[in-house]
Nucleic acid binder design. Structure first.
Lengths: 136, 136
DNA sequence: CATTCTGTAATTAATGTTATTACAGTACAA
DNA sequence: TTGTACTGTAATAACATTAATTACAGAATG
């Protein structure tokens, strides 16, 4: 994952945590992140699917946390945005006639699972409340 | 890091570990990875700069490990290829007039440093010898 | 019922990554 | 001493991914 989705989602959630329940519009959030509001709405849509955020349409609509910031762990955010393996994958399928090429993807997957496990454990120890408290 | 550099470098090094000192050509290695030999030469050049590999030009040239596979840790490989933060960065600079926007990059950096630390520790516990033994 | 907002699709623009081409230089071996 | 088989590296092109933009239907409010 080397795109901006994790930091953008964390930014959104930090703003929502600090808004303490009042609805924030995608325009306002985009103004803080300095990105396009459609990107914000897409990320909010994703966070909603993960149960972290709820949103309201129409005039005076916007988004708010779906549960207390104390109970949202950074690992939840990571899980919501994760899409590819942490340390990358080669684009081509390795040569099956080579002892290393044949099995490397299996062993890589195993390694990545182990490594991601320690990362997720670490993130599981930090709540959104912890993170957003730093801005006080 | 979401490109293929880590897996490609690990693939190269695994082949070299198993070659036990005999030189492998970039063409041979590229054949196992199934990528372009120039990519292999570039990665080898990078690994050489990190002191993990040595190579010889000219006829019958090629690459070999610069030190025993037992003393090359996966964290060394990670360090050799790492170029961007693990969990990504937003492309735009956030709004400095917003309490969150103003400080989020500082807090993100701090978080990333902590998280990367546990990842590197994990990788530091696995040697290239450990990894390549799996292919026996 | 005009206004302000979300939700989402479709397109374009920007960026990042890998492949390819090209060629100079090195080492070996006949 | 010259042909051959390699590395090293730059420059470019092809491809993939990511973010921005445009467009518009639909929801809630006053």
């Amino acid at each position: 994952m080397n795109n901006g989705r994790f930091p953008i989602s964390l930014h959104i959630l930090t703003l929502l945590a600090r808004a303490e329940g009042s609805l924030l519009s995608s325009d306002f959030i985009a103004g803080s992140i300095n990105c396009n509001p459609v990107i914000v709405r897409k990320e909010i849509s994703n966070l909603r699917n993960s149960g972290l955020v709820e949103s309201k349409e129409g005039k005076n609509g916007g988004a708010a946390l779906a549960k207390p910031a104390e109970s949202i762990m950074l690992s939840d955010i990571y899980g919501a945005v994760r899409q590819s393996s942490l340390l990358g994958n080669s684009r081509n399928t390795p040569n099956p006639d080579c002892a290393v090429g044949r099995d490397i993807n299996t062993h890589l997957e195993h390694l990545y699972a182990e490594v991601e496990d320690v990362l997720v454990n670490k993130l599981h120890g930090i709540s959104l409340a912890d993170f957003s408290r730093q801005f006080d």
